[in-house]
């Protein structure tokens, strides 16, 4: 089962066309074929959230989606939240300021799911933030600083998050 399939995705605003194995997951397509390395492979079964990306604005676990299934879609990874000149989104800046990453492996997925969470512009309590982030596991810093960062960024992140959720680079 190695026959190849041509798939085109708009990754972080850039149109990428690649021919690769027809059964590749979106995560493998991004990392191994398109050289987009910020979504991480960890559990491989849709539990940990390290591979989360936005597909047409919705967070999905890219390890359990076929690249072919989302042919033509707009895909936003954590790197796509950064502006064209390298400026951080308000959420990324808040993660930096609150030291919300230690090893950093869960961070791309955290940023993606938090971006989707904040896209509606609502202000959430810490408990609500924790609840909505339950699909993202961190095994080193703990979640305190992540929640601190998201709490600080909500409101400030609103505009940029909405743009990103629509696949528009901020």
């Amino acid at each position: 089962m190695s026959a190849d399939l041509t798939t085109t995705l708009v990754v972080n605003g850039r149109t990428v066309t690649r021919t690769a194995g027809a059964h590749l997951s979106l995560l493998r397509w991004l990392r191994d074929v398109a050289d987009v390395l910020d979504p991480k492979y960890a559990c491989g079964e849709g539990v940990c959230g390290a591979c989360a990306v936005l597909v047409d604005g919705e967070p999905v676990s890219s390890c359990i989606v076929l690249a072919a299934q989302v042919d033509g879609a707009r895909v936003t990874t954590a790197a796509g939240l950064t502006g064209p000149g390298g400026e951080l989104s308000p959420l990324q800046r808040a993660f930096h300021e609150h030291h919300a990453a230690q090893c950093g492996f869960c961070t791309p997925g955290m940023l993606i799911c938090a971006t989707a969470m904040l896209a509606d512009g609502m202000t959430r309590t810490r408990d609500e933030i924790r609840h909505e982030l339950h699909g993202n596991l961190c095994r080193c810093t703990g979640y305190q600083q992540v929640v601190d960062a998201i709490e600080a960024a909500q409101g400030a992140a609103q505009g940029a998050a909405q743009g990103a959720a629509q696949g528009i680079p901020p």
Binding site: A3, D4, L5, T6, T7, A22, L66, A68, G72
Partner: peptide
């Protein structure tokens, strides 16, 4: 939505 030209038997 699907626009790939190659459509091998592995993906229907």
């Amino acid at each position: 939505m699907l626009q790939g030209s190659a459509r091998p038997l592995e993906y229907l």
